[in-house]
Design a protein around this nucleic acid. Structure first.
Lengths: 189, 189
DNA sequence: GTCTATAATGGGATAGAC
DNA sequence: GTCTATCCCATTATAGAC
C-alpha cells in the first residue's frame, strides 16, 4: 500500500459516512471524529464539504463515462457490449463500493456546474445503454420486450450492486460477473 | 376525491420533498413553503419532523409486509408467487410512488423503536422472498443460478421502480406488470 | 388554523496560536 | 498539521396573540 494523501484519506472516510447516512446528515464534526482530528483541521486539506462530495461523485461518473466510451467504440456485438457493461459495474463496485452511495443518492446536492456536468454524463450513459439495447433488438440478438423496462431493470440492478456486494463473503470477481451476466441477460437474450 | 385531512396533506407534500432531496436536506421551512403556510403552523397538525418520516415509512413497510404474508400463505407455485410479488410492487408504486424514496433511502433516520420495527420487517420480507426462490429451485421450477444474485437482482429492480415509473407516460398497470414479469422472470425460469 | 417572536442547539467555516 | 475559540446563520420546536 502506498501512503495516501491526507486529502484522499478524508475523501475515503467521507465516502463511507455519506453512504451510511447521506451527505446532508453527515457533519464536518462527524467526519473529523472518524479521522481522529477536530473539524477545523479538515480545512487544511479540503476547501469545503461540497468539494468532498463533488470529488467523490465526479471521479466515479467519469470512470463510468470512460468505460462506456470504450465499450460503444469497440467492434463487438450487442450482447458482448452488455456483458462488458456488467463487467464495468462489477469492477468499479469492487474498487470503490463506498463512493457509490453518494453517486446514487446524493448527486442532487452537487452545486451549479458540477450538477450540470454530472447530469449530462448520466444522461449520456443511459442513452448509450439504450442504443446498445435498441440495436440488439433490431439485429434480433435481443428479445423484443419493452426497451425501457429492459434498460431500467438492468441498470437499477447494476447501480445498487454496492449495497449488496459488501454482504457477500469473499465472492470472486469473475464468478460474480459470470452470474450477473446469467441472471441479467439470459432472460432477455 | 374526498378531502384529505391537513395532516395527510402535509405527509403527501413531505413525501415528494423527501424523495427529491432526502429527509435531512428538507427543512420544516421548505415543507411549510410547499404547503403555503409558515413552519410553526405545521406543528398544529404533526408532532415532529420525525413523526412525518416514520408515518411515511412504516405505513409503506406494513403494506409490503401484509402483501407478502398473503402471498406466502397462498396455495400456488413458486413462479406464481414471484409474479404476485412483482404485482404487489407495481401496485404499491402506482399508488404511492412519492413515499418510496423515503422507504429506500431514509429509513436509517428512523429513531429507536421504529428503526428496529422497520429493520425486522425488511429482514423478514427478504427472507420470505429468498425462501420462495429456494423452494422454486428445489422443485426445479427455477434455474439453479446463485440464489442471492437472483434475489438481489429482482428486488433491486422492484425497489427502484418508483424512480423510473413517473417518467413513463401513461403506461398501463397491467401491461407494466406483464412486461416486468417477462424481463425479471423469463431469464431465471 | 395560522401567525410573529423567540428559545435552544448545532451547522459550515475562519483566525490565529502552537 | 492540528488545536482552541469563535463567527454567523440555519435548524427544530414552543409560546402565546389573533
Amino acid at each position: 500500500m502506498k501512503p495516501e494523501s491526507r486529502k484522499q484519506e478524508i475523501i475515503n472516510a467521507a465516502s463511507i459516512l455519506f453512504t451510511e447516512k447521506g451527505y446532508s446528515a453527515v457533519t464536518m464534526r462527524d467526519l473529523a471524529k472518524a479521522m481522529g482530528i477536530k473539524a477545523a483541521s479538515l480545512y487544511n486539506h479540503i476547501q469545503s464539504k461540497q468539494e468532498i462530495l463533488s470529488t467523490i461523485i465526479i471521479d466515479l461518473a467519469e470512470e463510468f463515462t470512460t468505460g462506456m466510451n470504450q465499450i460503444i467504440n469497440s467492434d463487438v456485438g450487442s450482447i458482448q457490449k452488455l456483458e462488458n457493461i456488467i463487467s464495468l459495474h462489477v469492477d468499479v463496485t469492487l474498487r470503490n463500493a463506498d463512493g457509490l452511495g453518494s453517486l446514487n443518492s446524493d448527486w442532487m446536492h452537487l452545486e451549479e456546474e458540477n450538477l450540470i456536468y454530472f447530469e449530462k454524463m448520466r444522461h449520456d450513459y443511459e442513452e448509450n445503454f439504450r442504443n446498445i439495447v435498441k440495436k440488439g433488438v433490431e439485429k434480433g440478438e435481443i428479445k423484443p420486450y419493452n426497451i425501457e423496462i429492459m434498460v431500467f431493470s438492468t441498470l437499477s440492478t447494476l447501480r445498487t450492486l454496492y449495497l449488496w456486494y459488501p454482504n457477500q463473503k469473499n465472492i470472486d470477481s469473475d464468478i460474480l460477473k459470470r452470474d450477473m451476466i446469467s441472471v441479467l441477460l439470459k432472460g432477455v437474450v
